[in-house]
Nucleic acid binder design. Sequence first.
DNA 1: AACACCGCGTTTTTT
DNA 2: ACGCGGTGTT
Length: 720
Amino acid sequence: MDVTHIIEGLNDAQREAVTAPPGSTLILAGAGSGKTRVLVHRIAWLIQVEGLSPWSILAVTFTNKAAREMKHRIEALLGQPVGGMWVGTFHGLAHRLLRAHWQEAGLPQGFQILDSDDQFRLVKRIIREMNLDDSKWPPRQVQWFINQQKDEGLRADHLDHGGDPYQRQMIAIYREYEAACQRAGVVDFAELLLRAHELWRDRPDILQHYQERFGAILVDEFQDTNSIQYAWLRLLAGSRNNLFVVGDDDQSIYGWRGARVENIQDFQAHYPDTRIVRLEQNYRSSGNILSAANAVIANNPTRLGKQLWTDDGEGEPIRVYGAFNEVDEARFVIDRIREAIDHGMARAEMAILYRTTAQSRLFEEALIQQAIPYRVYGGLKFFERAEIKDALAYLRLTANPHDDPSFERAVNQPPRGIGAKTLEAIRLHARDFSCSLWQASEDLLRGGRMTARAGGALRGFIELIGEATAEAQGLDLAEQVEVALHRARLREHLQKSRDGKGQDRIENLDELINAARQFDYQGEQEDLSQLDAFLAHAALEAGDTQAEAYEDSVQLMTLHSAKGLEFPLVFIGGMEEGLFPHSMSAEDPQRLEEERRLCYVGMTRAMRQLYLCHAESRRLHGSETYPLPSRFLREIPAGVVQEVRARPQVSRPYTPAAGSLGAAREMTGFELGQRVEHPKFGAGVVLNAEGQGSGARVQVNFEAVGAKWLVVAYANLSPA
DNA sequence: AACACCGCGTTTTTT
DNA sequence: ACGCGGTGTT
């Protein structure tokens, strides 16, 4: 077999990774070092050289996008479909496993998946049903608690409150939540992973089957795995030492949602014979960008250690702009974008990155003003839209009427006169008899103790679902969706709404039918009905943020969303203390390290040109703030930076730009932007000046105590 | 069942 | 500041 196509064009490290002998392998893949390439070529190597069957390969990623890309590239390289290979997200693969073994996993055959929003609503309902004050037990926090426990592999029964009343209550809610999910036959995202893990843990026969089947296990973005995901992988690998994991500890930016960098840091301790390969040659960025990124990340003490390098030249210096305020920052960025467009650059080659979503607004306004097309990443996905979720709730009820979250959602949407009192009675009955809301409704109707009006309305709903279920028999998927929409009268309801969005929403419903029509039931899961497969798809792969037609547009996104992407021209806004690193992370060294990794991720997105911006003043939550430039700016070597100013002026890259009022010095003896020292308040930066002679005052932003106005004559300020 | 008002929080996001 | 969610009013 000619295998040159598998290894040709790879550098030494990449080739070492791709052709590594069987056994635990850890690939430390720096940003832009070709990690997906290595994964894809490794799979081809396993099949075409090691002789593994595609059927015995499992490759897991975090996002559907990454899974899709990997599949495509494997198919392109092999020249054949991936066939029996398991390529997917942790959740997707866990789901597949649970569908195949629903009985052994203790689930009903038609179990449904709760997305975060469904989960939130259910948690809220349970808190209320437990007669707890939801201001004292905020559903968000409870939801977070539950997911955190599940991510650690812990069920309510495993938890010990240790006498702490707060813990005790949290655990009690968790327990109720588990019971409610079980009754309704629904699982949340974390539950998919937890159940899949328990299935293997408790059923050695099933585990053994999969251990024998999967000769090779490949993991992408390993630094993002949480405890349960890693435990799941370890079970599957057993003693076969067949984990091939790829990751970058320097790009671990999801610790706040349970990811454990320790998994990659301790991998070698778990698998002592692990072969480690470092991919340090970067094919993306210019030398200056890499020098800057390397220097910043070097400030993190707990790293496995890596140093990116490139064959490429130094390229352009990194440009730092100190804006007067956030409006000036946006103006500056959009001016640069305009210039680049005028020089013939495509808009899609430019990205504006920021720490918090709220920052996008100013950039958007400036882009709109200049009539430059742009696209903001993130936000609601197609299957997360309210009208789509309403429609899906009806479909889910036809698949499984005991799905309580869907019952709650659909029962009065559109309004059909089932009031709060009726619902209260249903919930109470369901609680007393530990049954579903559907069952409770039937019981109450049969009991005949409801008022004619309430009973009629409720009966109407029950019959509606029953009829939709009956009518859908034997129809194809798109027709089933159409039936549900029609019976529920969702379109008519939206038609009546007069908030201007009714028409859009109706179009979305049409799009849903379209999605059902085009839904490609991959035949992977023979035992899954078309409808169940579609519903699972809707939950696990909620679709793109915007289904809009492709247009060459400037890309706006948070630093988090930017991971894995690259752009010739990158702007990072808001490089300020308090914002980036965010004040929420500043005190804790671990979280600060993660902020720094986020900075590293952001910088390494840039291929040719990187602009870093900070503002001397910024409106935040309604009031004016005077943030210091981010410490990350200070960590960049001066040699690769060029400061950009409105009016050229000599200054350190990281000092706030002077307001260009030479007058300040004459008035007060201090320059705007000058670093000063105060005997009591410590170090700070001059922001503003007014008055003259003995009345002269300066505003100084002190690192320790914030901005203060001081009378120069008394303040005893000295230049620092 | 639609609308007004009030109070609160306010980092990051995928599945 | 601003938006959202929750409560109370018509």
